[in-house]
Nucleic acid binder design. Structure first.
Length: 183
DNA sequence: AGATTGATCCAT
DNA sequence: TGGATCAATCTG
């Protein structure tokens, strides 16, 4: 097993957002585990990024984004869905990578609830992986929820780049090509 | 295109 | 304290 460690999470946010493509996201629940391969991410970078929750400063919700890299930031959106992010950036610099889509994995000891086709939205990622607010702030180098490199790299030529989804209100930042996906 | 749903945040 | 807003999803 090659679990992503703190030196991975200390890299620049935009680099992490790309590097996470092809990595595996794993949630241990008791003796079972749910696994997905990451296929789409979005980066949220710094106080000036109007699309980021952190752009209005520190609040109880966004405090976690100002913390050290390598923790989970899980929030409820539209009253119904959870979104899972990895906190990046040094302490006091708010940044995170949202996991937008995964390919469910169904081999070995990994369990696989129903869904076989790739998820196509962050709410579905959390529903599949059974991630909710209880996991907010959890250390991603621990043994409950983590990411690992299983040696299946995504070639640079296979990485697509696009504007982020659902952030039309964010002025010049809405045009940043901070969404990454595998073609 | 509209309904859903409730936490969050800012302005009263 | 009230109400607009929201990094989404499903249904029609």
């Amino acid at each position: 097993m090659n679990k992503l460690n703190s030196s991975f999470y200390l890299q620049p946010t935009l680099k992490i957002a790309q590097e996470l493509l092809g990595k595996f996201l794993i949630h241990n629940i008791g003796k079972k585990r749910i696994v997905g391969r990451i296929i789409e991410t979005e980066a949220y970078v710094g106080l000036k990024d109007k699309a980021s929750h952190a752009s209005r400063g520190r609040t109880p919700r966004t405090e976690i984004m100002f913390g050290p890299a390598g923790q989970a930031y899980v929030y409820l959106i539209y009253g119904m869905y959870y979104c899972f992010n990895v906190v990046t950036g040094r302490k006091d610099y708010p940044a995170a990578v949202l996991i937008r889509a995964i390919q469910p994995i169904t081999v070995g000891e990994d369990i696989y609830p129903r869904l076989q086709t790739p998820t196509n939205g962050p709410g579905k990622v959390c529903r599949y992986l059974k991630i909710d607010k209880k996991l907010n702030g959890i250390d991603l180098t621990g043994n409950v929820l983590w990411m690992e490199d299983r040696g299946i790299a995504v070639k640079k030529s296979q990485i697509g780049r696009a504007k982020r989804i659902g952030v039309d209100y964010s002025g010049e930042y809405k045009n940043k090509l901070w969404r990454f996906y595998t073609k």
